[in-house]
Design a protein around this nucleic acid. Sequence first.
DNA 1: AGCTTATAGTTAGGTAGCTAACTAGTATTG
DNA 2: CAATACTAGTTAGCTACCTAACTATAAGCT
Lengths: 191, 191
Amino acid sequence: MPLLLLKDLPRYECLLEAAREFPDLDPSAAEAFLHLLRASDEAYGINARNMAAHGISAGRFSVLMLLWRGDQVRSKAPAGTMQCDCGPRTPASLADACGVTRATMTGLIDTLERDGFVKREPDPADRRMMSVHLTPKAEAFLRDYMPGHFKIISSIMSALTEPERKTLVRLLVKVQQQAATLAGTPQAVPN
Amino acid sequence: MPLLLLKDLPRYECLLEAAREFPDLDPSAAEAFLHLLRASDEAYGINARNMAAHGISAGRFSVLMLLWRGDQVRSKAPAGTMQCDCGPRTPASLADACGVTRATMTGLIDTLERDGFVKREPDPADRRMMSVHLTPKAEAFLRDYMPGHFKIISSIMSALTEPERKTLVRLLVKVQQQAATLAGTPQAVPN
DNA sequence: AGCTTATAGTTAGGTAGCTAACTAGTATTG
DNA sequence: CAATACTAGTTAGCTACCTAACTATAAGCT
């Protein structure tokens, strides 16, 4: 939960007033921006508290999901068709998929390994590399955890009807793409 | 920038497929949720990088804004009408307004004071209390920083038309209120 | 008054991010 | 084939958040 946010957002009239002093302030843009961050923060917080109650964090959850997805793809693939890459396994590729640095991933894997969720194994081919694997404990945890996780997300989004969700996604994609462009990292079009 | 997010969001078909395994997974809810966090994260990131380039963080910015707003209210108030509270001044009230703990606020004020943006002064009436004040350096900084800040926000939100912004805000308010209800802290209706 | 309770601020110790720098191993190349 | 450059992972040190515990002060209650 990254609180850059004031607990009470400024009211729209205050934005209008402030815009008199700062011509660069676009009240409707600022309003939308603040509400975006506020809503996201609130939704994120619900989830983060649930994760914390189960002893994991967002970063740890991401790693577990990536490894799990890879395992599932692997177990479903027909025998003999395994030369595809089945999701990230090394710290560097996990870091890349999670959007964190390798250093951060080292820390995440450290605590995940300490808590018995993953195991590091050296790569026989390249002695610089490690391979990270889920333990049975982690698989059991995920199988137990995910239903509640999905219930929470559904419950947050129950505020919106199906068409409202589509509209929201459409608007959010626009904002995200514009932001990605500004960040100088034009992402592939999502969905 | 709180990266709980995978860099590539799962495509909608993957959500549909996963929903077969997990009946609690509502694909459109998950899609909206992920896009909300992703868009917010991207927008937040633009801003955070700009702040970092100016040597401040989101938390520090919040504190500066709160103190500044208080100062402005104070300087505009007609003489003799100053018994109102003019915004938070003590670490505890700043912490409350920012939505962080007092301990966190101590840390923020520590570094702000170290960098010459604020000064702590003991309260003469209650010797437990401190009063935090902006320095002229901070005021100069804010006057210089804010126009660029507003420009960035406008530029992110330039992806949306005026009516789209209103729609986005309306949907986000619904989500935020629902989340706040789930968090057990039903907030006052914003705006 | 004197004990208890509450409050303001800080401190200590934890997690999760970051950057920068280091080690060890692999690749490239003159 | 030796010097160089790159890569994988880790380490160290930073910020910002958290909770829990501590100190000092103030307030409330017999």
